[in-house]
Design a protein around this nucleic acid. Structure first.
Lengths: 237, 237
DNA sequence: CAGTGGTCTAGACCACGAG
DNA sequence: TCGTGGTCTAGACCACTGT
C-alpha cells in the first residue's frame, strides 16, 4: 500500500500531533526519528508538511511544538484594506516589527512596475506583521520618493503604507491591481517569518493607483498559510 | 557572505540554466553535484526552487531539462470562467486527461460545503488539464447527484463542469465564492501534475451558487505556478 | 539493460536559545 | 555549556524510461 515510509510517517505523525494538546512539545527530532524508525532527514521532510499546514511550530534551539489554535483573518479581495484593518475586524491585534526604511534606485523591474525611469529615487519599506503568537506576514512597499519620503516613516508608522496614505489624504487612491501567486519562501522571507526555506507562501504583488491612474506604490506581500482566509466572489458570465 | 553552499549553488545553477537554450538537457544529478562541489541532496534542494518557478522540468528515468518558454494564461478573478475559456482567450489550447467520474456519499466536510445532509449522493469529477507541454492544473468538482448525474459526463465532457452547466442552461448560475490558498502538493496531486511532493501550488476552493442561492458545485482547483497569472482589482475605501 | 531522477539512511557540523 | 532544530555529506537502493 505504502511503498515509502513517508506516507506511514505522515499518518503516524498526524496521529501524534492530534493526540497532543496545543503548545505541547514534541520529542526532539533525533529521538522521534528513532521512535518512528526512520532517518532524521525523512522525519524532517514529513514535518515540513505539518508546518506548512500550520499544525506545528519549530523553533531552532528550543524544540517543536503543537501550534495553538489560532483565529483567522478572513477577508474578501474586492476591497483593499490594510492587514491592521482586517485584523481589527476579526477581533485580533497585530503589530509591526523589524521596520526597515531605505532609499533605493529603481532597477528595470521596479521602474516598469511603477511606470518610472530606471534609477528613479524610491522609498522602500520592509516590515514584518506579527500576531500575538508569531510573525504571519512579510511586507515590502516601494514608492516614488516624492510620494512618500523616508522621513515621514521615521515616527508614528504603524505598519500600513495604505493607511498612512489614506490618512494623509493625498494622493487620492482609487484601486489596486493585485497579482496572486503561490511561492516557496526565499531565505530572507523564511527567516523573517520563522519558517523553513521553501515553505509554501501566498504572495500578492500589488500596484496601487491614484485618481490620475499613476502607480503610487508597488508592494510585495507574503502570507503565512493558516492565518488568513482570502476569498473572492466571482460572477458568472 | 554566504554561510551555506545553498545560496552559491542557487546562483551558479541560475547562471547555468539561463545560459542554456530551452529544452536543453542538464547534466545528471550525480555529475552536476560533483561539478558544483556539493552533495546530491543539496543539489536537489536547490533544483526544487527552479522547478517550483517553472524554469526546469525533471523527468524520472529521463533527465532534467530547461523548461520551454511558455505562454501564460492571464485572467482576472472578477468573472468565473473555465480554464478552457481562459486558454482560448490567451490563444492557447488545453486538453483534459485522466477523467474520473465517481458516485460518492457526502462526508461531513462536503455536506457542509454543499449545504446538504451527510451521506447525500454526490457526483465527483476529477481530471487533469494539460497544455501542449505538460499538465498544469488538477481539478476536482463535487456536485449533488440530482444536479449532474454520472451518465451525463460519460460522453462529450471536455473538462469544464462550469461550461457544461452553462450550456445546459439549468440550474441558472449566478456566482462563485472562491477561497484562495497556497499549499504544498500532496502525493496524489504531485503525481498528476508531474511535480515533486510538496511543490508549491495555488489552490482555489470554490462554491458555485445558482439563482436560488443553492450551492450546486464545490470544486478544488490546483494550479501549477508559471502557467497562470491571476489578478484582482481591489477598490480602495 | 543502463542511466535517470526519487527516496532514504547514518552521521556530521553549525547556528541558535535557554540555563 | 548543552540540547535544539538547520544544513550538508556520502552512499545506498528503488522506480521509471528508453534502448
Amino acid at each position: 500500500m505504502s511503498p515509502y515510509p513517508f506516507r506511514r510517517l505522515q499518518i503516524e505523525l498526524a496521529e501524534l500531533i492530534h493526540s497532543l494538546p496545543a503548545e505541547a512539545r514534541l520529542p526532539s527530532e533525533p529521538l522521534l526519528a528513532k521512535q518512528m524508525g526512520v532517518s532524521r532527514a525523512t522525519l524532517r521532510e514529513a514535518m515540513r508538511t505539518f508546518e506548512g499546514q500550520g499544525l506545528i511550530r519549530r523553533r531552532q534551539g528550543v524544540g517543536t511544538f503543537v501550534a495553538p489554535k489560532v483565529p483567522v483573518m478572513d477577508t474578501g479581495l474586492e476591497v483593499l484594506e490594510s492587514l491592521e484593518t482586517i485584523a481589527l475586524r476579526s477581533g485580533m491585534t497585530v503589530r509591526m516589527g523589524e521596520l526597515q526604511v531605505e532609499k533605493v534606485a529603481a532597477d528595470e523591474s521596479l521602474a516598469k512596475l511603477l511606470n518610472l525611469e530606471v534609477e528613479a529615487e524610491l522609498t522602500c519599506v520592509t516590515r514584518i506583521i506579527f500576531t500575538e503568537q508569531r510573525p504571519v506576514a512579510y511586507l515590502v512597499d516601494t514608492l516614488p520618493l516624492d510620494i512618500l519620503g523616508v522621513e515621514e516613516l521615521e515616527s508614528g508608522f504603524t505598519g500600513s503604507v495604505l493607511d498612512l496614505l489614506l490618512k494623509r489624504g493625498a494622493p487620492k487612491l482609487t484601486q489596486s491591481r493585485t497579482e496572486i501567486k503561490a511561492i516557496g519562501a526565499t531565505s530572507e522571507v523564511a527567516r523573517a517569518l520563522q519558517i523553513q526555506r521553501d515553505a509554501v507562501l501566498l504572495h500578492f504583488a500589488a500596484q496601487l493607483y491614484d485618481e490620475d491612474s499613476r502607480v503610487v506604490d508597488y508592494s510585495d506581500s507574503y502570507f503565512l498559510p493558516g492565518y488568513f482566509r482570502f476569498h473572492v466572489v466571482r460572477r458568472v458570465g
